[in-house]
Nucleic acid binder design. Structure first.
Ligand SMILES: [Mn+2]
Ligand SMILES: [Mn+2]
Ligand SMILES: [Zn+2]
Ligand SMILES: [Zn+2]
Lengths: 121, 121
DNA sequence: ATGGAAATGATAATCATTTTCATTTGTGGT
DNA sequence: ACCACAAATGAAAATGATTATCATTTCCAT
């Protein structure tokens, strides 16, 4: 495994919201940064692995990345326009713990996403 | 636009759960059905359009389809041995609806998985 | 300086999905 | 039956993101 190239993270920060690997790459090129597409992919994957960035998918399937808040949260995503709301999951946390306990599981993590149509769509 | 080939829907029903276009296609071939991959894609898209089928994406980006309204469940998976328990998610259902309402989302679906170590591992 | 490990990036390979387009099939009128 | 025309079909090629290879470069500890 490789470590994340700091310039990739810096570019993603500057990008503001979500950006795909291809977009981050093009951005860096426009700004004169010398970097390979492969390294951009590797760095973003590494950042996701370290839970420093979130990854989701556009409707067309392209993966998009964005800086993640430091606390654990879940997502409410619009299927149509991609608008994303980070939501709290107190109920989910309890549910996950209860289910794990009930079936004798330990060291559990969980994933939970809600998707639908936002008010604008 | 084209209409959905009924054999595709029938196959997706028989698959029971999620299945990708490629999987539906292979399933039909194995069962001796004569159909083209293109028609499978077109039919699934049409079914999604008509809200007869839900579509979401696997981690690897492949689109997976399932019948709408099919009573879904969630999974508790052991990271070590792979043992899987199907669990109820009443708390999750409520949480998803509440979050959606709070943020003005409609027609929402959700995914939720719990993973950890089972009692044997 | 030197050797090995890690990082890099150009290139090729993968693979799901979409596009083309020629052919087949269905339908309705005569 | 015959014809005209629209819809459906599917083989083949194109697309495009992501991943795998692998030779080269950069780091780093000794
Ligand atoms: Mn997030
Ligand atoms: Mn549920
Ligand atoms: Zn929206
Ligand atoms: Zn186990």
């Amino acid at each position: 495994m490789s470590r994340s190239n700091p310039r990739v993270l810096s570019t993603l920060e500057r990008a503001g919201g979500f950006a795909s690997a291809q977009e981050v790459y093009k951005l860096m090129q426009r700004e004169g940064e010398k970097i390979g597409l492969t390294t951009v992919y590797r760095s973003l994957q590494s950042l996701v692995n370290d839970k420093i960035v979130d990854v989701l998918r556009r409707d067309d399937g392209e993966a998009i990345y964005r800086l993640c808040g430091e606390n654990h949260h879940h997502h409410l995503v619009c299927k149509s326009c991609g608008e994303t709301v980070e939501i709290e999951g107190v109920a989910i946390e309890k549910w996950a713990k209860a289910m794990a306990a009930e079936h004798g599981f330990r060291d559990v993590g969980h994933t939970a996403e809600i998707f639908g149509l936002c008010s604008k769509c």
